[in-house]
Structures are given as structure tokens and as C-alpha cells.
Amino acid sequence: MKRSGFTAWLWLVIFILVLGIGHPVLSGQDIKSPVQLDFGPRLYLYNFYGIIALGENKVCAVGNSGTIIISEDGGKNWQIQKSGVDTELFDVRFSDSQKGWAVGREGTILRTDDGGKSWYSLKSPLETTLLSLSVVDENNIWAVGEWGTILHSADGKTWEIQNEKVDKIYQKVFFTDSMHGWIAGEFGVILHTEDGGTNWKPQINPLENVTLFSIFFKDTQTGWITGMDGHILSTDNGGAKWTELKSPTTKTMFDINVIGNTGWAFGLEGTYILSKDGGITWDQGRMPNFSWLTSSTFSKDGKCWVAGGNGTIWFTEDGQNWQSPLKLSLLSSRK
């Protein structure tokens, strides 16, 4: 009697085991986590207007809706910092590794004292949009924007207005030192100061009314300007005379830099042009996609970083191959 009971239990156990092994769920095959679609970092949701490299592996970028992001590992990982504002930020510059400023719409001026971890708003004398920032050091800062706004700070905290209101947008400001600075803007306006902004004088633009977007000076004499439809101007006497250079592109360029013998300029539709002879001749380069690019920066380890729309942040070490830190493999150029 007892034995037949035991046999029955044995059969039951065997049956269940057979069922169990045969059944995917019970044998553990299906107990995996559900399939996840991996879209990677979602930086493509943001538009970045300003970027600055701080030290070897640290990069800071600012963009729409008050976004400030920082990477401390060469771009592999990014942290969103609290800016305290929700309006567009158009430029970011630092005077050293700790102190930095960002400007944007509605007269926003932000400052950080801890390398970008925390930011606070400075009192701005105006509510007009500020588009560009130039930081020589913490006691010499200028910001320009709509309605001919030029702001100057001598202490990194308070600001004075250096201009009269005029219906022109000043797109970019650049100071080589505490005295010498230039502004490029709408309707082809070029302004120059030699006394730290107390006086601003217009310079002659051979292109007349063509809007200018970017200006850069290597020293107080040698400089470049880019503008709409691919125009490039250069000067070697501080802007007393500007001459047009031959440009390989007809797309608007928003940013230009010449470091040593290499010149870099970026603009609309992913346009990238470079110069190998210190900014005299320029050639067409290639970017991995067609998003607009508005800002570039150079890190101490020789990388050029560029930022733009659709979450674009690229870097290159040789000016040819651009890597997105978002994916670690080298992106092939368009065929």
C-alpha cells in the first residue's frame, strides 16, 4: 500500500519536472528583462548655442530652455546642471577653471564660482536678449545683444551699459585684452574700441549691409569676420581695412577661430571650413551630419569641440575625423 502511494508521488514529480524543463518559462529562458530600446543619451533633444572647454577633459555647453550641461570625462558622460532659468542661453565663457558666466534671452546673466556645478543669476541692467560674451579675465567682461546692447563688467558681478539703444542686433563681441575689442552685427555693422569700451567707433565693411555673425582676433591687428552666405573678411591692421577672402561655401558661418596655423569656421547646415595657412585660404571640410553649428572651443589637449542643433557636440583631434562622444566609435564621414 505504502509503496504504491510512493510510486504515484514519484510519477507526479517526474511529470512536473518534464513539463518544467520543456516549458521555457519554468526553465528560466523567458525570465529575462523585457527588451529595451536603447536610444543612447538624449542630447539630440537639445540645441546647443555655446560651448567652452575647461582643462583637459572638462567641457561645458549651454543651450535652449536654460540648459547647461557639463562633462568631466571628455564627453562620455554629461550632467545637466541647474541653471535656475528656463530661457535660452547663448554663450558661456570662463575666466579660469572655477569662475564662469553665461548669457541669454531676457537679459539673463548667470555666474558660477565652482566650475559650473552651481549657477546663480546676476542682476542685469536690461531685459534685452544677450547673444555673445567675451571674458578677458574676471574684471573685464563684455556682453552684447539686441537693440545695440553692450554691457561691461569690471568686477564680474555688476554691469554697466556702454552704448545707446539702436535698432541693430550685435551678434558677437570679441576682446583680445582689456582694451581692444570688436563687435560684429546686423546690417554689416563692425565696431571697434581701444579703450575698453568707453568709446566705440564703426569700421568699414566692404560687404555693406550683409549681416555679420562672428569675429575673432589673434592679436590686436590680425582678425577675421564671417557673415551671411559664406562671406569671410580678414584684416591685418586691427580692422582699419577689412578685405574679403575667397570662401569655399555659400552657407552662413556663425563661428570662426584661428589658432596657430589652423583656421576653423562653422555654420548653417553642418558647414565646416578650415584653413591650413593661418586663415588666408579656406577649404571645405565635412561634418557627420547637417545640423547647424554655432560655437566651437579648443581644449588644452588639442581637441576642437563644436556645438550646434539636434544635440550636436563633436570633437576632433585632426580636423578631419569628427567623433561624437555620445557614441564611442569613429563616425564615418558622409560618402
Binding site: 539630440y44 547646415e269 553642418g270 557627420p288 551630419n289 547637417f290 545640423s291 547647424w292 539636434n310 558622409r334
Partner: peptide
């Protein structure tokens, strides 16, 4: 055509993928 698409981010990334 490319210009018209790339300058409009309602199209570039939405009707044409970013890698084109």
C-alpha cells in the same frame, strides 16, 4: 532641397533621418 530640409528641424530629423 537639402538646404530647405536641413534648415527646418520640423523636417530634418522627422521626415529625413539625421544621418540622411
Amino acid at each position: 532641397l537639402k538646404q530647405n530640409i536641413f534648415r527646418n528641424n520640423l523636417y530634418y530629423g522627422r521626415f529625413v533621418s539625421i544621418d540622411t
